[in-house]
Simulated assay, not measured.
Amino acid sequence: MIKTLICAVTLALMCATGAQAEDNRAKVTVVFDQALPNVPGKSMKGVLVEYAPGGASPAHVHAKSAVIYATVLEGAIRSKVNDKPEKTYHAGENWVELPGDHHAVSANASKNEPARLLAVFVVDTGETELTIFED
């Protein structure tokens, strides 16, 4: 059921268009929030991240309990987590972030085309601040 929910949300997001923040930061929208019935105290939250051409997010960490599976839906995203080398992910590619990971680079790889990703968080149900920016 959860896999079906993720597929349905991903398909809907791929068809949607979105506006960007005026300061060229990524627009972030929680698109689903579901308690996990077989894992008491945990929830799955889907977050759509939309980048304008040349857009980016400041360096950040996530909620202490968060395990994140991020999939690029459109365009290409430059990402650098911890001391790993920066990598560009294209539509259909993904990565995982674990509790305590530092996301130093998160940016649209293109100056001309938008980019979008879906980040699926498994997090303590009580967590309200999913991303803590360094700016």
Rank of each mutant, 00 (worst) to 15 (best):
L48G: 02
P37V: 14
D135A: 07
W95A: 02
S110M: 09
L118F: 01
V39Q: 15
A59S: 12
R116S: 14
V47E: 04
C7F: 02
A35Q: 14
E22W: 02
T17F: 01
V30F: 03
D83K: 12
P85R: 12
S106R: 03
H102Q: 14
V30M: 11
L118W: 00
K84T: 14
F32H: 07
L98F: 14
G54W: 04
A107R: 07
A21F: 03
H62L: 07
A70I: 03
R78E: 15
I2A: 11
H102W: 13
H103D: 06
V47G: 01
N94W: 10
L98K: 14
E93A: 07
E129K: 13
K64F: 12
T125F: 03
G41T: 12
A16C: 09
E97K: 04
K84S: 15
K3T: 08
I68E: 07
V49T: 09
M14Q: 15
V120P: 00
C7Q: 10
Q34N: 12
K87R: 15
I68P: 00
G75P: 03
D101S: 14
T29W: 04
H60A: 10
A115P: 00
L117P: 00
R116C: 04
H90C: 05
I132W: 05
T4N: 08
F32D: 05
A21M: 10
T17P: 00
A59D: 05
D101G: 09
P58C: 10
G55D: 03
L5H: 05
K84F: 13
V9T: 13
T17Y: 02
I2Q: 12
T4I: 07
E93N: 04
E86K: 11
T88C: 09
S65R: 08
Y51K: 01
A35P: 13
A107Q: 08
L5V: 03
K42A: 14
I132Y: 09
C15S: 11
A26E: 06
G75S: 08
D135L: 05
T17M: 04
Q20L: 06
D33H: 11
K87D: 06
I68D: 02
L11M: 06
Q34D: 09
A12R: 12
V122P: 02
I132M: 11
T125C: 04
S110G: 11
S110Y: 06
I6A: 00
A91L: 04
P58M: 11
E22R: 09
A21L: 13
W95L: 10
G100F: 11
A56W: 05
M44C: 08
K80C: 09
K3D: 10
G46L: 02
V105E: 05
I2T: 12
Q34E: 15
A16I: 00
S43K: 13
L130T: 06
M14T: 07
G126Y: 03
E129P: 03
L98M: 15
R25V: 00
C7T: 05
A104Q: 12
G18Y: 03
P85L: 13
E50I: 01
A19G: 15
A91N: 05
S79L: 09
N82T: 14
